[in-house]
């Protein structure tokens, strides 16, 4: 839903990192997106195509590394992927869990020439 705002911030980060390295062209953008963020890759691609026009990132390929939501139980220490969005420890059924993965929203790397 808010992919446009995220994509705008991502593009400006891409362009500023590329400028720092005197890049002429951005060929590939590697992103790391957690499941909890609900960000839809196709939607980011669509906006990126539109707003990167006439920049050195125009035509760059976006690659996504999706991270599943995971949690650690405070009571028994068990770490587990959150399957089907069930929020309790599969081992001891405690609700005392901390979400440890799935909130990622990172620009990992760029491939530039």
């Amino acid at each position: 839903m808010h992919e446009l705002a995220i994509t705008e911030d991502m593009l400006s980060l891409v362009l500023s990192e590329a400028r720092k390295h005197d890049a002429q062209k951005v060929n590939r953008v590697q992103l790391r997106i957690g499941e909890m963020t609900g960000i839809v890759g196709d939607s980011v691609r669509f906006y990126f195509e539109q707003i990167s026009k006439d920049t050195i990132a125009e035509g760059a390929i976006l690659s996504f590394d999706f991270v599943p939501a995971a949690a650690r139980c405070r009571d028994c220490g068990h770490q587990f992927d959150i399957a089907d969005f069930v929020w309790s420890c599969p081992k001891c059924h405690s609700l005392n869990i901390d979400i440890v993965a799935g909130n990622e929203l990172y620009l990992e790397s760029l491939e530039v020439t």
């Binding site: 911030d9 980060l13 890049a23 620009l107 790397s109 760029l110 491939e111």
Partner: peptide, 14 residues
Amino acid sequence: MEIKVLKNILNAND
């Protein structure tokens, strides 16, 4: 050339 960035996309807002 590959540039390692590893920055939060919402860095500016944060």
